[in-house]
Amino acid sequence: MKELLKELCLINGISGDESAVRDFILSRIPDDCNRRVDNLGNLICFKKGKSSPKKKLMICAHMDEVGCIVTSIRDDGTLTFDTVGGIDPFVLAGRQVLVGKDGISGVIGSAAVHNLSKEEREKAPKVSSMYIDIGAEDSSDAKKYVKPGDCVYFDSDFISLGEKCVKGKAIDDRAGCAVMIALMNDELEYDTYFVFNTQEEIGLRGSRVSAFSVDPDLAIVLEATTASDIDGVNGSARVCSLGKGPVVSFMDKSTVYDKELYRLAFDAAIEENISCQTKTKIAGGNDSGAIHISGDGVRTIAVSVPCRYLHSASCVINTEDLNETYKLVKTLMKRIFAI
């Protein structure tokens, strides 16, 4: 699954521009899957299992990643931009980026530290005062290569850190996509819908319409969630930790999760000897927020891979967590029909 995740993370696809990710996924899902692409670009698949339960189960992950979008070209050839999804200005300043379909290299520069006042050095930079430098001499030079509306991606490789961890951009939520592709290639016990959503990062847009059209009774959302188990952060502020298995939360900013499903996940984890943890802070949100209030309501649970430095060019996960997430969801896909 690590190789699959690598291929997925190296594809560029910010919210609203997920087609390259979707094309790759289409090449990796089994032939015995029904598939369609809806008006928002969501990829909705259905695979028959050995039996057809009365309740409808939907598993989903989102294809989009955070990035930026070019808003204008200045006279001096620099590009103004906005973020697509929430990105901390600290992780934008001083980075290499790729602009547009042709992947023009650029940098988000910042004034030399020598020339900053003491006050400026101690204050967070503002995204609104940042810009991208692609090396253009002036605007007519820049216009030959880029245009407003071009997508901007982190220029970031996918590497191993130590024996267990990997680092890359877009692990949120290509990790979920990777787990789902692996599950789809297994033989299934029960009929299942698999949905690859668009536009999660700008407000759970794709999942709102895909949940409406699939109209499931039960949903399992596969995600990457924010871990802060780093030096200097202690106790509950760590939220969740790498290497302690998938994260099943009882509540986040967008959803109070179904209590029975929450318990089912932990019971299953214990019985199957899968490590599993919860979040110790009410933070973040995911497509569950749109799904659980879709139609007349969907019983929803999210199973997430803990991820450090989420929404940066350098997301870090432990691949053991990825494998444990796969195992937990695989057993939940059977057990969930019992409730």
Binding site: L161, K281, R308, Y309
Partner: peptide, 13 residues
């Protein structure tokens, strides 16, 4: 040895 400088993501800052 490759590594990443730790940061707290926007969801938690």
């Amino acid at each position: 040895i490759k590594g990443v400088i730790c940061s707290v993501p926007p969801h938690l800052s």
